[in-house]
Design a protein around this nucleic acid. Sequence first.
DNA 1: AATGAATGAGCGTTCATTCAT
DNA 2: CATGAATGAACGCTCATTCAT
Lengths: 193, 193, 193, 193
Amino acid sequence: MKKDKPKYKQIIDAAIIVIAENGYHQSQVSKIAKQAGVADGTIYLYFKNKEDILISVFEEKMEMFADNLNGIVKEDITASMKLFKMIENHFIVLASNHHLATVTQLELRQSNLALRLKINAILKTYLIWLDAILKEGIKNGEFDQSIDIRLARQMVFGTIDETTTSWVMNEYKYDLVELTGKVHRLLLKGIKA
Amino acid sequence: MKKDKPKYKQIIDAAIIVIAENGYHQSQVSKIAKQAGVADGTIYLYFKNKEDILISVFEEKMEMFADNLNGIVKEDITASMKLFKMIENHFIVLASNHHLATVTQLELRQSNLALRLKINAILKTYLIWLDAILKEGIKNGEFDQSIDIRLARQMVFGTIDETTTSWVMNEYKYDLVELTGKVHRLLLKGIKA
Amino acid sequence: MKKDKPKYKQIIDAAIIVIAENGYHQSQVSKIAKQAGVADGTIYLYFKNKEDILISVFEEKMEMFADNLNGIVKEDITASMKLFKMIENHFIVLASNHHLATVTQLELRQSNLALRLKINAILKTYLIWLDAILKEGIKNGEFDQSIDIRLARQMVFGTIDETTTSWVMNEYKYDLVELTGKVHRLLLKGIKA
Amino acid sequence: MKKDKPKYKQIIDAAIIVIAENGYHQSQVSKIAKQAGVADGTIYLYFKNKEDILISVFEEKMEMFADNLNGIVKEDITASMKLFKMIENHFIVLASNHHLATVTQLELRQSNLALRLKINAILKTYLIWLDAILKEGIKNGEFDQSIDIRLARQMVFGTIDETTTSWVMNEYKYDLVELTGKVHRLLLKGIKA
DNA sequence: AATGAATGAGCGTTCATTCAT
DNA sequence: CATGAATGAACGCTCATTCAT
């Protein structure tokens, strides 16, 4: 499996660093190769093309969210609490890796539509976990029966995303994780029964 | 004034069509010129460079939102109602111009950081109106005194934006304006007293 | 006659100023028109094309040399003295008009070959006067009978030209006219009997 | 070292041919690449930009003069004889390579001021050798003690240059090297004691 | 005669990808 | 597996010239 070879991860990590430091449009394949300490051509032994590197960056890192989410959903706590932990998890992961935050919130969004559609597909996993939490809350009476799941999901995701992007654009100058409580309360009020 | 000359608007409109139909990265100046029915060089009599066209697209169309908002804010109605009308206005404008919606929600976000920062500056106007409504509601007791204005603004804007983007990505296959009520209710629950 | 109309000279003078101040490659027709206080299109009522402006600049200003030379050659003095006056005249004209000096010694030489061939044709007049002086000196025994007229002419002209160009490139920081005596002596030694 | 790779010289030689045959302003990078038998992009593996090709052409070929001059100056002969050999060397090198002669005498002079200043810097080496010969001759009594070195240098260089340019403009129709004796005699008379 | 808006051909340079070694 | 030299398609912008008014 290619993904298990050391150079695969080396290139992924190099890509994040290069993109965060140079911006999407100044992240040439040759720069990523140099940062990874491999030849340009070597990149193509592990990735189909440049787009494939970027998708893989997203895929790999998305697992960090998903793995944690998996655990959270299975815990024996209220849906509201799961929502809290999910937001917190999201903020913690990005707050602990500014490079990754810049890349996902700003740089990767400059990619072409095709790439973004693929990224959205990956995001689906994330949104499915979110849906699960919402449905659970509706079912057990914590959340309002009448809410539109899709809209609620868009509100939750849109708010988290907008909050994170604002934080990145303000150059991380306040503590993102500290906002968890407020964001949770705001969203909860919107959806609770 | 250049902006009043017919070719200025002609080029702006051509840019929206070309970008919506070809995608940001496939919208060459020559394509825009052709669509506008002018020579390539003519573009540069009205715009400093390609980026300037895109910023102007955003500026011009943002006025459509702003002008309406101005009226809404001044009406003698509740803050909650103003919020409703603001969401509705946002949805109506974009629902009535699919090309524009595609451009603002998908294509323009692929532009480089410099352009996006300029776009954000333009968006500021929009967010200021939103802040005004939120503050009014807090002041007159409609909205919760304890909410964080910035977070509330991010929730409202994030939700509207995410909802619109989803609608565009689903190829306009449902009625966006019809969602106004639900979105409003959801958001209102989050912020009301 | 177009050359007698005021705008003709206006444009010529504007061209010299613009070229001297902006360099050959930054002297667009529109800039010359602006400096001359006329519309771009007006230029083409007086000149066939851009090249024609530049040739005319050279033609007009060359007359300043030629007119003086004419007088010098007809004076009743030795050929050696005529040579002195010719060099002096050359230096005086250029030393009194730095703009013109920059244009003829540096900027106009960046023009294409076609233009330079035409300029050379104009220069012919100048070289014919020079030849006349040389022939007179050879005939009356002042200059060496055995010298090759063409070579002698190239030496005289090459030396004057190289001296002037050096002076321009050194930004006029020494007195060009003061060099007349030395240059004359040097050249005279080379050709005298 | 890039300069030692075969493609480097290949491109330099192609540039000389293309410029000589098409003129400075009609020598597009793509044309040079085609003549060199490489892809356009390959040019940029060896040269920073187009201007860099031209400077390198001059640099490389100037070495042909300089190398020979070095030998000449060190020979155990009179300064006058060194001057003769220097002129002869200049004429021989250019007479044996018409393309190079056209490029240095006509085409490269159409370049912009920045490039010409760089070319002048390279020429400095050449003029330093010339100065050395002049100083030697003055010191050992061969040349006139009272001559101004700078003027003498300008006369020698101006004459050689003007002679060569005339020969090129007359399409090489007479033998340049044959002129060595006459030119040398003329110049020597001007500077000898 | 004079204007100046409009034209459109033309080109240096970058960079993702390939492939011989 | 790994290399890195070579490729060549693609595009924003300038500016001399025209021509309707």
